[in-house]
C-alpha cells in the first residue's frame, strides 16, 4: 500500500488482466508441418466419457478416441509420449481449435454443417447413433415414443434432448444437468427415467456398472465422429484421412473397438465410414 497510488494500480490491474487474455498463443500453418518439425502435438479429448475418453487417476487417458488419436499421431510422426492431452468439453471444442490451444480434437466430435463453418474435419472414424439408456429393470421404454410423459436427462449444451422433444415431437420432461455422470446418478437413483446421448457414450457408462442399465437400441440419428482441426488445414485433413484409411485397412481400428466396446455388449459398427472429404 505504500508504493503505488490509485491510478497506477488501476493500470497494472488492467495490464495483468490483458496479460491473462493474451495467454494461449496463435499458431499458423498445417498441423502436418508442426508434427514434422516439432515432433509434438496437443490433442483435445473428453475426460469424462468412459469408453471414449476418460482421465485415469494415474494421469493417463484411455478410450476409443484416445486410441485413435495415438494411432493418427503416430502416422503423423509423433510418438505417444510427445502428445499433450487437453480436456475439451462439448462447449469449448471450436474455440480451443480456433485459438490454437489444441492441434487436433478427438472428442466424440460429430461433423455438422454449423461446425464445418468454424473448423475442418478429418474422418469420420466412427458413426455413432443417438440412443436411450434406461434402468435394467425398466421394460416400459422400448422406443422413442415411450418417452412421452417420462423424464429425460440431458447435459446442458447437448442437442440430444432437443432431438427427441423438437424433432421427434415426443413430449418428454427434460432435466438438464452439468455432466453425464450426474445423469447416470439420477437415472440409477430413479429421479429420471432415461438418458439420451450417443450409443458410444451410453455404452461406456453401462459397462461401468454392469447389469444396472440397458441401452434400448433404437438408434435414430447418425453422429459421424470427425477429427477437428483448424479451418482450411487441407494438408492436415488429408494426412488424417490417410491415417484413418490405413487404420481400417490393417484391422487396427476394429481391434481398438473390440477392446473399448466389447465389455459393454455393445454391437459396434466396424466398417470404415465414408470419408467426409477435405475439399
Amino acid at each position: 500500500m505504500r508504493t503505488s497510488s490509485g491510478p497506477r494500480m488501476a493500470t497494472s490491474a488492467i495490464l495483468l488482466a490483458t496479460g491473462l487474455v493474451a495467454c494461449g498463443g496463435q499458431t499458423s500453418g498445417s498441423i502436418v508441418d508442426k508434427a514434422a518439425s516439432e515432433k509434438k502435438l496437443v490433442i483435445g479429448i473428453k475426460y469424462d466419457q468412459p469408453g471414449l475418453g476418460v482421465k485415469k487417476p494415474d494421469g493417463t487417458v484411455e478410450g476409443l478416441d484416445v486410441d485413435i488419436a495415438k494411432y493418427v499421431a503416430k502416422e503423423l510422426g509423433v510418438a505417444e509420449k510427445d502428445i499433450t492431452w487437453v480436456e475439451t468439453r462439448s462447449a469449448n471444442r471450436e474455440p480451443f481449435i480456433q485459438q490454437g490451444q489444441v492441434d487436433l480434437v478427438f472428442a466424440s466430435y460429430s461433423i455438422t454443417v454449423d461446425r464445418k463453418k468454424k473448423v475442418t474435419f478429418g474422418g469420420p472414424y466412427y458413426v455413432a447413433h443417438q440412443d436411450i439408456l434406461v434402468r435394467a429393470g425398466d421394460t416400459s421404454i422400448t422406443g422413442v415414443e415411450d418417452l412421452a410423459g417420462k423424464t429425460l436427462c440431458s447435459v446442458s449444451g447437448s442437442v440430444s434432448a432437443k432431438r427427441i422433444t423438437d424433432e421427434q415431437h415426443v413430449k418428454a420432461k427434460v432435466q438438464e444437468v452439468g455432466g453425464w455422470a450426474e445423469c447416470v446418478t439420477r437415472l440409477l437413483g430413479g429421479q429420471v427415467d432415461a438418458v439420451s446421448s450417443d450409443d458410444t457414450v451410453l455404452a461406456g457408462f453401462a459397462a461401468q456398472q454392469p447389469g444396472t442399465m440397458r441401452i434400448v437400441g433404437k438408434n435414430f440419428s447418425d453422429e459421424r465422429y470427425g477429427v477437428g482441426m483448424r479451418l482450411d488445414d487441407k494438408k492436415g485433413c488429408e494426412a488424417v484421412d490417410r491415417a484413418i484409411q490405413k487404420m481400417f485397412a490393417t484391422g487396427a481400428a476394429q481391434e481398438m473397438m473390440r477392446l473399448r466396446f466389447g465389455a459393454a455388449n455393445f454391437k459396434f459398427d466396424a466398417k470404415q465410414p465414408r470419408p467426409e472429404g477435405c475439399g
Binding site: 475426460y47 469424462d48 466419457q49 468412459p50 476418460v54 482421465k55 485415469k56 487417476p57 480436456e87 468439453r89 462447449a91 469449448n92 452439468g178 455432466g179 455422470a181 450426474e182 447416470v184 446418478t185 457408462f205 461401468q208 456398472q209
Partner: peptide, 21 residues
C-alpha cells in the same frame, strides 16, 4: 468448464469410479 476442485469431484472422479455422491 473451469477445471477446479468441484470439477474433479463431480466429473472426473465419477467418470472412472461411478461414485458421484
Amino acid at each position: 468448464a473451469y477445471e477446479d476442485l468441484l470439477n474433479a469431484g463431480i466429473r472426473l472422479i465419477p467418470a472412472t469410479f461411478s461414485n458421484l455422491i
